[in-house]
């Protein structure tokens, strides 16, 4: 791999690529795996958006998405095909994210990096300071509140489904969502006030 090739990959990917740790299909795919991979492919943009909002930084999001895909592809046979693929993939993503948080001992606020070009100026949000402020407010939430809010409010999962993914009781999800939205209302008072 040349230096030019290397520059195409975000930080953190290259080492794994060189070590050959990425899940690669061997030979011809079975029709089941092929179908699974195509469904996963279609989910990638949504998963990346989720990872960006969850981690608050593009490089972390790309690492998380990469690791999630790797694990999902290794375990694809464990997905029974009857439930929601989105929920299954998100469970893996959130587990990986919490493992990483624990490892890095990242607690309390995880502020939006001001110089992150992706989150500071998302596509379609040019001139829409409201959306930028919303992202900043979401990233400033406690990680566990942000996770609950993303699953319920953005992904549209039920409290029970979110509780299953996060490994907490339904009442805890209810409480976290409530606190997260209250914090957003406080942080976005001007925008919310304009609307109401």
């Amino acid at each position: 791999m040349t230096d030019e090739d290397a520059s195409r990959f975000p930080a953190g990917w290259l080492g794994r690529l060189r070590r050959g740790e990425l899940a690669r299909p061997r030979g011809r795919l079975s029709s089941g795996e092929s179908r699974f991979r195509r469904e996963l492919l279609a989910l990638l943009p949504r998963m990346r958006g989720h990872a960006l909002a969850l981690t608050g930084a593009a490089d972390r999001a790309d690492d998380l998405l990469q690791d999630t895909c790797e694990r999902v592809l290794l375990r694809w046979r464990q997905w029974n095909g009857s439930g929601s693929l989105v929920a299954w993939v998100l469970r893996i993503m959130h587990n990986l994210w919490y493992d990483r948080l624990r490892a890095e001992a990242v607690r309390a606020t995880d502020p939006l990096p001001e110089d992150d070009p992706v989150l500071a100026d998302p596509p379609g949000a040019e001139g829409h300071t409201e959306l930028q402020q919303t992202l900043a407010a979401m990233v400033a939430l406690l990680p566990e509140q942000r996770a609950a809010l993303l699953l319920v409010s953005v992904e549209g999962l039920s409290y029970r489904e979110a509780a299953g993914i996060l490994g907490v009781p339904v009442g805890t999800v209810r409480s976290r969502v409530s606190r997260a939205r209250a914090a957003l209302v406080e942080a976005l008072k001007p925008a919310v006030g304009r609307q109401s």
Partner: peptide
């Protein structure tokens, strides 16, 4: 607003 913002990221 939260849903729209994440949609934009997607």
């Amino acid at each position: 607003l939260g849903r729209t913002a994440v949609d934009e990221l997607s």
